[in-house]
C-alpha cells in the first residue's frame, strides 16, 4: 500500500500575525514558517502505518513557492520515503490545490491520501473534501484514530457530539485531527539522511490545471482590539453591570 501525504507550509502557529498596511494580506518576510500542524499528524500516521508493515511507501507532497520544499524535507526527516514539490508562487485556493493533488494522485496511484483537517492560515477546511469529490473516492474527515483493515479503513472522527466511527473503502482520503497521534521529532541523523532523499520537482503550469482564483479577496484586517477589563467590587455590582450595561442577563 502506498500513502500520499499532503503537507502545507504556513506561518508558525506561535507567531503573532501582522496584517500588511494596505490590507492586501499578512506579512511573511522574516517570519518563522512551519508545517501546518495537522499535516504533521498526517505524516506521523502514514509513517506509523508503514512501520507496522502495512504500507510500503510514504510520499510527501507540497504545493507552493521554492521554500515550501523545507516542508517536504521535514516530512522526509520523520520517515517519508520521497517527496514531490509542485512549484507555484502566490496564494492558491483549495480548489486549485485539490486539482493539482488529483493530477499527482493520477500519476502516483496511491491507495490512501492523508491530509490535515484544515490549514491554520486560511482555515478553509475544504481541500480534502474537494479532492475526494474530484477523485470520486470516499473520505473520512477529522480523523482521531485510523485502523487499517484489509481493503478498508476504520476511522474515528471527532465531531461536536462526541466520537463517530466510520468504515470506508480503500482508496480513500483521510483528513487528520491534532489528536490522532503525537508527531515525533526529527532526529539529527535523520535530518542528515533526509537531505539525500529525492524530491521530484514539478511545475504547476505543466500539469494542465487551471489555478486561477475564484475568490476575490477584498481586504484583510486585524480583529478589533479587546477592551481592557474592569474590576468589580461585589457580586451585586457584577450582576447589575451584566444586566444594565452588557445587557446579557
Amino acid at each position: 500500500m502506498k500513502i500520499l501525504v499532503a503537507v502545507k507550509r504556513v506561518v508558525d502557529y506561535n507567531v503573532q500575525i501582522r496584517v500588511k498596511e494596505d490590507g492586501s494580506g499578512i506579512i511573511t518576510d522574516n517570519v518563522k514558517m512551519s508545517t501546518n500542524p495537522p499535516d504533521d499528524n498526517a505524516t506521523e500516521e502514514a509513517v506509523k502505518i508503514k512501520e507496522a508493515g502495512k504500507s510500503k511507501e510514504v510520499v510527501a507532497v507540497t504545493i507552493g513557492e521554492e521554500k515550501a520544499q523545507e516542508t517536504v524535507r521535514k516530512a522526509l526527516a520523520v520517515g517519508a520515503d520521497r517527496g514531490i514539490h509542485v512549484k507555484i508562487d502566490g496564494i492558491i485556493e483549495p480548489l486549485a490545490v485539490a486539482k493539482i493533488l488529483q493530477k499527482v494522485v493520477e500519476k502516483e496511484k496511491p491507495d490512501l491520501v492523508f491530509m490535515g483537517k484544515q490549514a491554520i492560515d486560511d482555515d478553509c477546511n475544504q481541500t480534502g473534501q474537494m479532492l475526494s469529490a474530484l477523485l470520486n473516492w470516499p473520505q473520512a474527515t477529522f480523523a482521531s484514530k485510523i485502523e487499517v483493515k484489509d481493503k478498508k479503513l476504520e476511522v474515528t472522527r471527532e465531531i461536536d457530539e462526541g466520537l463517530e466511527t466510520v468504515e470506508i473503502n480503500i482508496p480513500a482520503i483521510v483528513t487528520c485531527d491534532l489528536r490522532l497521534n503525537e508527531p515525533r521529532y526529527a532526529s539529527l541523523p535523520n535530518i542528515m539522511k533526509a537531505k539525500k532523499k529525492p524530491i521530484e520537482q514539478l511545475n504547476a503550469s505543466d500539469l494542465g490545471v487551471d489555478t486561477s482564483s475564484r475568490i476575490e479577496q477584498i481586504k484583510v484586517e486585524e480583529p478589533p482590539k479587546r477592551k481592557a477589563g474592569i474590576k468589580v467590587s461585589s457580586v451585586a455590582e457584577l450582576v447589575q453591570k451584566l444586566k444594565n450595561e452588557a445587557k446579557v442577563i
Binding site: 503525537e182 508527531p183 515525533r184 521529532y185 532526529s187 539529527l188 541523523p189
Partner: peptide, 11 residues
C-alpha cells in the same frame, strides 16, 4: 519518556 521521545546524540 513520551511516545515522541527522541534521544539526543553525541557530536
Amino acid at each position: 519518556k513520551k511516545d515522541s521521545f527522541e534521544p539526543g546524540i553525541d557530536l
